[in-house]
């Protein structure tokens, strides 16, 4: 008796899940889309991390979507310029935006309102935050750094890219969790911050490992912590934040969004197509070369949207504490 009911339930569940799986898998092609070139707007300059990400993902995506895809770089004003351009275009899925944490921060500053402007498409990458010190520094592990900072409050200087950025936020979240008082010195371009730590002018660098790999291998920068729930295969000796008791795992993420009001069928179709592009060998080999395969970064539209909200709340809290916003 019980068995029968059990099987009945199981088969029902199976049928339903199969149905769901099928409908997602198919994400049938919307009528007549795409019939004109798709434009992807990147808010950073050519050659940067986000730009290479978009260009590498679009390479296989062109074949999958059977459409020509143009990548446009529109730099300046922390992405407001690029975002405004996208918002001026019709919500028809022909303009895709390279959505990044800056939009959430701009919302906190009152320059944008991501909730009303953008509909999430997909998150593709979850990069990792790591801290590095100069090999000549007095501290070579994160424990030594914390001990030193506690003895010399306000003396340790961290650096990263731009003020009120994800870099500063993770540094300050870490400082708060570790109970230390530190200073943050922003640079407008990442290479300058690398040089400042290499030259011994600043103490701790925040950066994703992909762009400083060669410096790590040459032992010119010593990684001391990775913000992740487990150690990385590539750096087995570097402790992760969770094992040290800091529940901080955020890092820079890169994804795509469209203007709010874009038809759901187009969003689903694009999401499914970009998933295929993401799984494509061409993209994967780039991800592996840039150390972007160390953490699973894929998020579907719904999941990505929820993630925006939780990130937004966390960013807003820290920005308030630092005095950037009221």
């Amino acid at each position: 008796m019980l068995n029968k009911k059990y099987y009945l339930h199981l088969s029902l569940v199976l049928i339903v899940s199969l149905f769901i799986a099928f409908s997602v898998q198919a994400a049938e092609k919307p009528e007549g889309y795409p019939s004109q070139p798709i434009e992807v707007v990147v808010q950073y300059g050519a050659g940067g991390g986000s730009d290479t990400f978009v260009r590498n993902l679009m390479m296989p995506a062109r074949k999958i979507l059977k459409a020509s895809i143009n990548v446009t770089n529109m730099t300046g004003a922390a992405g407001v310029k690029a975002a405004n351009y996208v918002l001026k275009q019709p919500a028809d899925g022909y303009t895709i935006y390279n959505f990044s944490p800056e939009q959430l921060i701009n919302t906190a500053f009152g320059r944008q309102n991501y909730k009303e402007e953008f509909a999430p498409l997909v998150q593709v990458q979850q990069d990792m935050s790591m801290f590095y010190v100069n090999p000549k520094a007095e501290y070579q592990t994160v424990q030594e750094l914390i001990a030193y900072a506690k003895k010399n409050p306000g003396k340790v200087q961290f650096t990263g890219t731009t003020p009120a950025s994800p870099d500063e936020l993770i540094i300050m979240r870490f400082a708060k969790a570790a109970g230390i008082d530190v200073k943050y010195i922003p640079f407008d371009k990442a290479p300058k911050s690398h040089a400042a730590v290499l030259g011994g002018h600043l103490d701790v660098l925040h950066e994703e490992p992909g762009s400083v790999m060669s410096l790590i291998q040459a032992k010119k920068l010593i990684p001391i912590i990775v913000f992740n729930d487990k150690r990385l295969d590539k750096f087995p000796e570097v402790p992760c934040s969770v094992e040290l008791g800091y529940n901080l795992t955020s890092g820079r993420w890169r994804g795509l969004a469209v203007k709010k009001g874009t038809p759901q069928t187009i969003i689903d179709y694009l999401a499914a197509s970009f998933k295929k592009a993401y799984e494509h060998g061409r993209y994967q080999s780039y991800a592996k070369a840039s150390l972007l395969d160390q953490r699973f970064g894929w998020k579907d539209p719904e999941e990505f949207g929820k993630f925006w909200d939780s990130e937004y709340e966390a960013f807003k809290l820290v920005l308030k504490e630092l005095g950037y916003i009221k």
Partner: peptide
């Protein structure tokens, strides 16, 4: 570039990028 605050933008977006 140091504090991320807007200067002389007069509340608009146009001048934000400088």
């Amino acid at each position: 570039p140091m504090t991320s605050i807007e200067r002389f933008t007069f509340g608009g977006d146009a001048l934000m990028a400088g």
